[in-house]
Design a protein around this nucleic acid. Structure first.
Lengths: 337, 337
DNA sequence: TGTTAGCACTTGGGCATGTTGAGTGCTAAT
DNA sequence: ATTAGCACTCAACATGCCCAAGTGCTAACA
């Protein structure tokens, strides 16, 4: 038995199964792919593949389908990342146009990726922990309500409402703003908890109370911008691509709604040297995703934030990986510029 | 045949069907509800109800299920909005706590509503067209990139990036900010297109270019905040409550992703004097929702923004309506205060 | 030694057939 | 107007049968 042919057979099985969604048998295999051997030979190979746990038969006399392990081998050793089609390239390019507001861009990106792959696309907001304070603003909404706005040099704006114990005057706020800004402008968001208390301590006693509340608000904002968020699109694809429901979409929708779950999932995916990381079926730490795969990669400075897609284990890995990688690259380029 | 009993029968059918998800027959009906008559009598009544198009039989010898028209009559004339349970009341109350950032509140509200009803919950951002400018901020991100921030007195913050044709200096921006703010502070967002050009015209020629770009940016922000947005939660409920899939969730997910569709749907729902508006099955203008119902109501000042839920036509209307109404009231109270 | 043809064997899916039970509509009696 | 009774309908379920697809094995072959 030749080792290379065995892999070729696995590849053929994966490709056919992804395409047809039906267990694939030895005969159909030799017909569609011009391997130079007979079905009997293929059967021998298949028996070996099954022994190794790479494929499995749903019942005695049906064709074989790839196991998670089979997909893994396929992704790692067999598949070549296909180049994108011209149309896809064009679609990504047109993303370059339009306003370059971070939120807008991410929203359009994730929509694009979901269309490109026909899967659910997810993108994590860029990490901002290394961002610095560019500007702050205190706005009096009501006598005891102050809107606190924090602008980072990354262009991200965070806002929140702070309640004061006593009435605050506009002039006081102006003064405090100057004070705070003088001390924290240019500092990393990370360092806010260290820097802010000293500012409060230096305030005149009359303002100390208000200053404390504002400092607390700023801290919360700084933390929130570190606190991760995500955007997603294409959930309808879940229903579409699973008309025959091998993937029960309930648990998947649940996972998607629990953004925390998705964010951890993305964060935990190690960076693959080939550029795109794949997590297949039961490899996923979350139970609801045991029939799903995640294809993700980093983007932006240091590839710290992640972008990726979620779909059934039975997916077209080569194309999906190519799409994810391409979109991530473009995204990095846009945000970096 | 007595008219009141006929309605009673319809009510019983609706209630049983909503509960059991199975066509309900005459015999089961007399058993479960103590109507003082025999199944034969019920059968006669049912025949009449069917003639009027209020109920239908899936096949010759099965029980009856309510039609859209039947649900409509049920909602309009029969059902009483049930009071909420103590637990539900408590859940809503605990919503009162926590930061009262608009976004936060809406997010928690929509989550709560989806849990309360076991449906998909949707909430529209409050209309801001009548809001006024409280504050603006120009922040230099790069020599030719300016972050424009617009803060409305409603507490909403909008931001966007503006590209300048030439390099801009910090002092110039400060000067322009003072100029703009002086003219537009307190004006309605609506009026920005009228007010802004005159400000630009009054600028010294050297700054006119930059001022024009900034004015354009501000206009965009003002428009965007009028431009409606929504939050939703509970999509997983779609899969859960439809294990046997009488409601194919694909089209529904599509509708939910097309936020424009949902927003129009909500906006178009007339305000019902009883407080909650219901749109049932094919009454919905959107095709994908022909097997779904929307229960919605207004909240906030003038009840201008909408909050509601989306679920299968076969839903527990009384409880759902009660939940939507109660949550909307609490939300109004929180935002109003 | 690897490949192949041939064959017996397994099994899910499709189909025709039979049975059951819930449910209806009608009629005649109350 | 209501009801009991009855004949009728039909989906759901079960049973049995056959078929096609697919397997594993063995013996022959290059």
């Amino acid at each position: 038995m030749s080792e290379p042919r065995k892999l070729e057979v696995l590849r053929a099985i994966v490709e056919d199964y992804v395409h047809s969604r039906e267990p694939v048998g030895s005969k159909a295999l030799v017909e569609r792919h011009h391997l130079g051997v007979s079905s009997a030979t293929i059967r021998n190979d298949m028996a070996l593949l099954e022994e190794e746990g790479l494929i499995a038969a749903p019942h005695t006399s049906a064709g074989r389908i790839p196991t998670d392990k089979g997909y893994r081998l396929f992704v790692d050793r067999i598949s070549e990342v296909k180049p994108l089609s011209a149309a896809e390239r064009r679609a990504i390019h047109s993303l370059l146009e339009g306003p370059d507001d971070v939120e807008d861009i991410l929203e359009r990106t994730v929509r694009l990726l979901s269309q490109l792959t026909n899967q659910v696309a997810v993108v994590q907001y860029p990490h901002l922990s290394r961002a610095r304070v560019r500007h702050i603003e205190f706005v009096l909404l009501a006598p005891r309500q102050v809107l606190v706005v924090l602008i980072a040099d990354s262009g991200k704006v965070e806002q929140g409402v702070v309640h004061a114990a006593t009435d605050a005057a506009d002039e006081e706020l102006m003064a405090l703003r100057a004070r705070f800004l003088g001390s924290i402008a240019g500092s990393q968001l990370d360092l806010m908890p260290q820097v802010l208390p000293s500012v409060v301590a230096l305030c005149p006693p009359a303002l100390r109370n208000l200053a404390g509340a504002l400092a607390h608000g700023l801290e919360r904002l700084a933390e929130r911008s570190r606190d991760e968020r995500m955007v997603m699109a294409g959930t309808a694809n879940l229903a579409r691509s699973n008309v025959d429901f091998p993937l029960s979409i309930g648990p998947v929708l649940e996972a998607l709604e629990e953004q925390v779950v998705m964010l951890r999932l993305l964060s935990d995916m190690a960076e693959d040297p080939r550029g795109v990381t794949v997590s297949i079926g039961r490899e996923n730490p979350y139970d609801g995703l045991s029939e799903a795969s995640v294809v993700a990669t980093g983007y932006g400075p240091g590839s710290s934030a992640k972008i990726g897609i979620l779909g059934p284990t039975r997916m077209d890995y080569p194309n999906t990986m190519a799409a994810v990688r391409a979109v991530a690259r473009y995204l990095s380029r846009i945000l970096g510029g």
